[in-house]
Design a binder for these strands. Structure first.
Lengths: 157, 157
DNA sequence: GGTTGCCTTCGAGCGCGCTCGAAGTCCTAC
DNA sequence: GTAGGACTTCGAGCGCGCTCGAAGGCAACC
């Protein structure tokens, strides 16, 4: 286990997260994508691999979440990097990060190392949002369990 | 501490929920609303008490989430029960329960005791949804913390 | 070369949950 | 009785994140 993977493990334990889904590995270390994966992928293949529809992939490109090269014929060509970004985007989306914020983050990355601080701040803000959301959900869960325990109580109760 | 409150406590502990917000008490026992609260409230007062805008309160009524009486002049009059329902609705909404599902739940309550089983099933379904969402968020949190720890890594990583 | 099917762009549409504005009514204070 | 503000209904609009369809181009196989 690498030092990085170890740190990740610790974080996973820290937050008592369930097993990360299969793609999480790729997510965290995009350079470790399966070696047998072609270096260039069609939009259909990316859709299949990521579970994101081709329509949505085009949309993500349109709104500036990911840049994608074109073949001579004008078709999209996703390289490993682009695939990694798509996977990363799906992760952020899954945590309800708004498209706008992701766009901003990507923009900062493209602007280079000088923006590292702002990037960090962006992520920390979002982290705080997730924590709040987790707390809200846990409170709501308690209420709903109360509802289930008292079973069939009236609406207002 | 009543037996019911005890069960609720247990559930709260079970899910490691933070302290329930101030309104949770009312939520769980609508009949315990502050005694000095007028029996009848205007929409403005309900908006103020619940933090839900008057526009939204009208919307909730329109889509069938809560029935509200009218004064002679045609103005809305919220009684304790209606207020309790509004608070309950906000809780469910806060857990992302769709309006449609809440509407269905309210409908079942209005249909009487015979629907208790279906109501329970509805809540249990929603409970499962919340649990899944909590797990997703925790996984996303782990990824974001990884991002924060490795600080300024590239997009795809 | 033809057929088949995935690909392109572009713009419109949708589902959700509000949010707002217009036009008019009611209530209260003076 | 009149001014002012809060209330009513109704229908339209909005922000988000897709989702879809039309019209046409490219690619691969027969």
């Amino acid at each position: 286990m690498t030092a990085v993977a170890e740190r990740l493990r610790e974080l996973v334990d820290l937050y008592d997260a369930p097993e990360l889904p299969p793609l999480a590995g790729e997510l965290c270390r995009s350079l470790d994508l399966p070696a047998d994966l072609p270096a260039e992928l069609s939009i259909a293949r990316v859709a299949e691999l990521t579970g994101v529809s081709a329509h949505t992939l085009r949309y993500y490109e349109r709104v500036g979440l990911v840049a994608v090269a074109r073949s001579e014929g004008g078709h999209r060509v996703y390289d490993r990097d682009a695939l990694g970004r798509v996977i990363f985007i799906t992760r952020l989306r899954c945590s309800d990060m708004p498209i706008q914020a992701i766009r901003r983050y990507v923009e900062l990355v493209n602007l280079g190392e000088a923006t590292a601080e702002e990037r960090l701040a962006l992520m920390q803000d979002h982290r705080a949002t997730i924590i709040r959301r987790l707390q809200e959900l846990q409170a709501a869960l308690a209420v709903i369990d109360y509802k289930i325990v008292t079973y069939g109580g009236r609406c207002g109760s």
